[in-house]
């Protein structure tokens, strides 16, 4: 759905924001675009949203060239910038009505579309409220509603969850899941990593204008973090267990943490019962064995290690 090839962007000031970014987002994906601040996320997104010119490279959305036919691309995408304002002096429905009119929707269709997106984003009870009185979370929702009003195939969201409280974030996540269920392709940038894994199915990590890694989230985790972190909890004799584990095949490191041993284990899931068996055979009082989730944050830290300025 989105194809970016060799995007290079050099600003007039001489800053090289992008140095050859390539990525591919399949239709229906929820694609996480991850990177530290200043990595080039917003630049890439603004180029995709037809707001910025590239220095070199190609980008297509839904088969349409972003630079050649920006008007066609605009019809396809719903764009939510990282920072945005609202037009003051309008009610919520008027605000949405304005944007649907700006998308050249006929008047009758407009009313239905507004009702739909307000229902979807839970804004319906606030229909007559003035937009400038809304809270940050509500504004975020309103902006998402505006993004959805012309029923775009692709959603391009630049850090949509930034600055939201946990409840709003969870609600936002649920909303994105719903949207994905409706068949929309979602391109979402973020640096809040922990939450992305459970609903994104592809991701790419960008730093200093280069793509460091990209692909399926699970596949990438396997490739980039071959070692599993396993925490073995014992009643006592943790040191003894650590020694025993250290010589077990596949274990690369073990460390005592109180009454538990933290093990780095290079093996597949099927090898884990063997580990358990060995501990039990030695008569160690094992309480439990638990695998730590290989979350995006760890992944991120691992990949960008040493390259952060």
């Amino acid at each position: 759905m989105i194809r970016v090839e060799n995007l290079v962007k050099t600003y007039d000031t001489g800053t090289q924001a992008l140095r050859g970014v390539s990525l591919h987002v399949r239709e229906g994906d929820i694609f996480a675009f991850i990177g530290p601040n200043g990595a080039g996320k917003t630049t890439t997104i603004r180029i995709l949203a037809t707001l910025l010119e590239t220095t070199a490279g190609r980008a297509t959305i839904g088969g349409e060239d972003v630079f050649r036919y920006p008007e066609r691309v605009r019809k396809l995408i719903g764009f939510m910038p990282d920072e945005f304002g609202v037009y003051p002096g309008l009610r919520i429905w008027e605000y949405l009505d304005f944007f649907s009119a700006a998308y050249r929707m006929p008047k009758l269709e407009r009313r239905r579309a507004i009702d739909d997106v307000m229902a979807l984003t839970d804004l319906a009870p606030l229909r007559e409220k003035m937009v400038e009185t809304l809270s940050k979370g509500m504004r975020q929702r309103l902006c998402l509603a505006k993004t959805l009003v012309h029923d775009p195939k692709v959603l391009i969201l630049d850090e949509p969850a930034a600055g939201l409280d946990p409840r709003a974030r969870i609600e936002f996540r649920a909303l994105l899941k719903t949207l994905s269920g409706m068949g929309k392709t979602i391109f979402i940038s973020s640096h809040i990593l922990t939450e992305l894994r459970e609903f994104c199915n592809a991701c790419c990590i960008i730093e200093r204008g280069r793509i460091l890694a990209s692909g399926d989230i699970d596949g990438m985790a396997e490739r980039l973090m071959p070692a599993r972190i396993i925490v073995v909890r014992l009643l006592s004799r943790a040191a003894e267990a650590a020694e025993a584990l250290a010589v077990h095949p596949g274990v690369t490191a073990s460390r005592v943490e109180g009454n538990a041993v933290r093990v780095e284990f290079q093996g597949v899931e099927a090898d884990m019962p063997g580990l358990m068996k060995m501990l039990v055979e030695k008569g160690l009082p094992v309480v439990g064995l638990e695998e730590k989730e290989r979350d995006m944050e760890a992944l991120f830290m691992r990949i960008t290690k040493g390259e952060l300025a």
Binding site: N6, V8, R19, H24, A56, G57, R58, A213, G215, I303
Partner: peptide
């Protein structure tokens, strides 16, 4: 740039930057 468009961008840690044209 057109000639260089070969990869899908899915490889890990790909280093194409040296060949990319500057401004």
């Amino acid at each position: 740039i057109a000639a260089e468009q070969g990869g899908t961008g899915l490889e890990v840690g790909r280093e194409q930057i040296a060949g990319a044209p500057r401004g």
